[in-house]
């Protein structure tokens, strides 16, 4: 692949100081993300999974240039965003947009749908006139499957699923190249979640969007992504094309996540890996491999050096020194059950 990726992060780190101990003394820091280098290729959907607190949202915000990173950089279409001033960033803002998790806090309760949708156009160079904004807003509403009569309504009149559609319409107003979606379906009921996931798939295809899709739900990430990255304690531990990752995980944490994910397919006499203990604190992560304190395959060497994300297959990288392991795939059980179980 010689094409420049839409997004490239290089050794991206975000450390938050937390006030602790005496003032004046250097306090502790939360290493929310720590040395993340990944590419998001054009027109592809990269799914980012990981448990709560693993740093997914922090990574997403850093990619959107919302918070300046502690170190490392984010390149958007070959340009290093961290070098740009607020003003110089503006033209890039139009090309990258985001959709939020909470359909209730992501829309300003005091603004009508037309005002909310019009906003991204208002701040574009030149700015768009009122009627131009309104026309575009109506067009985008229809694109996300809502009637144009909703333009003059206010957020409290809508259900969670409808609000989420409005949030998606807002992100699409400027015809962005890149869309970051942080847990966009977590707050929705399953039947509504399916509607929104289908909408994303359609829009991605029609508008040739590049996407970073953040979620903690493995089934969802498997459904929407071309590439999946697994995050643990602020680091990417494995990244691979979706099929390869689900059918042949190479990192013990990925295996544990896949085996812990509940599945409604009946008859799965699946071996379940129950991890011991909790995720360690990102304030003082374990030495060496961050996962070693819970890893069923850890050996003494795991505590020494931090394993690098190394190639283990085509486009498949994993950060585990135990490349000798034969790990269990997500589909580690009868396939006919899967087919039979999906209702017609």
């Amino acid at each position: 692949m010689s094409e420049t990726p839409m997004i490239r992060t290089v050794d991206l780190a975000q450390h938050f100081p937390i006030r602790k101990g005496l003032p004046g003394r250097p306090g502790a820091v939360v290493r929310a993300i720590d040395g993340v280098s990944i590419d998001i290729p054009r027109r592809q959907v990269v799914g980012l999974v990981g448990e709560s607190g693993s740093g997914k949202s922090t990574f997403g915000r850093a990619v959107m240039a919302l918070d300046p990173p502690t170190s490392g950089r984010v390149e958007f279409d070959g340009t290093d965003l961290s070098q740009l001033s607020r003003a110089a960033l503006a033209p890039y803002r139009r090309r990258m947009q985001m959709v939020f998790q909470d359909p209730f806090s992501s829309l300003n309760p005091r603004m009508s749908v037309a005002e909310t949708l019009g906003m991204p156009l208002r701040f574009r160079e030149g700015g768009a006139g009122r009627s131009e904004r309104r026309d575009r807003a109506a067009e985008m509403l229809e694109m996300v499957g809502l009637p144009r009569s909703y333009l003059d309504r206010f957020p409290h009149e809508f259900s969670g699923g409808q609000r989420q559609r409005i949030g998606i319409a807002r992100a699409l107003m400027t015809s962005p190249d890149f869309l970051m979606a942080d847990e966009v379906v977590s707050a929705l009921d399953v039947s509504v979640q399916a509607q929104v996931l289908n909408l994303f798939a359609r829009l991605q295809r029609e508008m040739e969007l590049t996407m970073l899709f953040i979620t903690h739900d493995l089934a969802v990430v498997g459904h929407v992504s071309d590439i999946v990255a697994v995050m643990y304690l602020g680091r990417i531990v494995e990244i691979a094309p979706t099929r390869a990752l689900f059918s042949g995980p190479r990192h013990p944490y990925t295996e544990a996540l896949l085996s812990a994910a509940p599945s409604p397919v009946p008859g799965g006499a699946r071996k379940r890996i129950i991890l011991e203990g909790d995720v360690p604190s990102p304030v003082n992560p374990p030495s060496g491999c961050p996962f070693r304190t819970r890893c069923p395959y850890a050996i003494a060497a795991c505590a020494e050096d931090r394993p690098a994300l190394a190639a283990v297959g085509p486009d498949h990288r994993s950060a585990c020194i135990r490349t000798d392991l034969d790990l269990m795939p997500a589909t580690g059980r009868r396939t006919e059950a899967a087919l039979e179980g999906s209702p017609g």
């Binding site: 919302l66 803002r93 139009r94 939020f100 998790q101 806090s105 829309l107 906003m119 208002r122 701040f123």
Partner: peptide, 17 residues
């Protein structure tokens, strides 16, 4: 900290807005 404010920032809104 609410998302709609972040959304405005992402759109390039000014401090005054």
């Amino acid at each position: 900290e609410r998302d709609f404010v972040t959304a405005a920032r992402v759109s390039g809104a000014s401090h005054a807005w």
